[in-house]
Amino acid sequence: MSDSTVEQTETETAAETEPETAAATPGQHVLHATRESYLDVVKGLQDEGYDMLVDLCAVDYLSHPGRVLPNGVEPERFEVVVNLLSRPLRKRVRVRVQVPDADPTLPSLFDLWPGTEAMEREAFDLMGIVFTDHPDLTRILMPEDWEGHPLRKDYGVGRVPVQFKAAPSTR
């Protein structure tokens, strides 16, 4: 991956940034990557000096179709959000990737930053995003045999109706 592609990606999104989009992400630098370019974009950013991957999480946009996206970015159900930080540049950048419901897979960033190991497992556990090439994609927070991915919007809160029962007699 050469630097030119990165610049291209950046200029592309920058060119397409509308005032509306900018307002939705106040004062923050956001890049949109496709699933195919995801690894390259992140790799390019790493080469550019973004030396820390601070956060990786997934969002389920099932019940929020009206979100603001720049032109050319096809909204999908899931979105994986990667927050990068550059110590030398003192800058943050956010990479957002659209992941379709039908095939929720994404390449793993484990080779670039081993620190994504737990974060990707968390996204898999709670949101059901499958990261290919991840060394150990197992549930991390929920029990091993849990069914479903709790943070998905079609997964209920799991509220237990509160029952008021008489306290056992003390006498």
């Binding site: 939705a24 992400t25 106040p26 601070v54 603001v68």
Partner: peptide, 18 residues
């Protein structure tokens, strides 16, 4: 509508909210 990531320095490191 919108999305934001904010980070502060917590006793154990960077605490971020997305």
């Amino acid at each position: 509508t919108g999305e934001v990531y904010v980070a502060i320095e917590q006793p154990r490191g960077e605490l971020g909210a997305y």
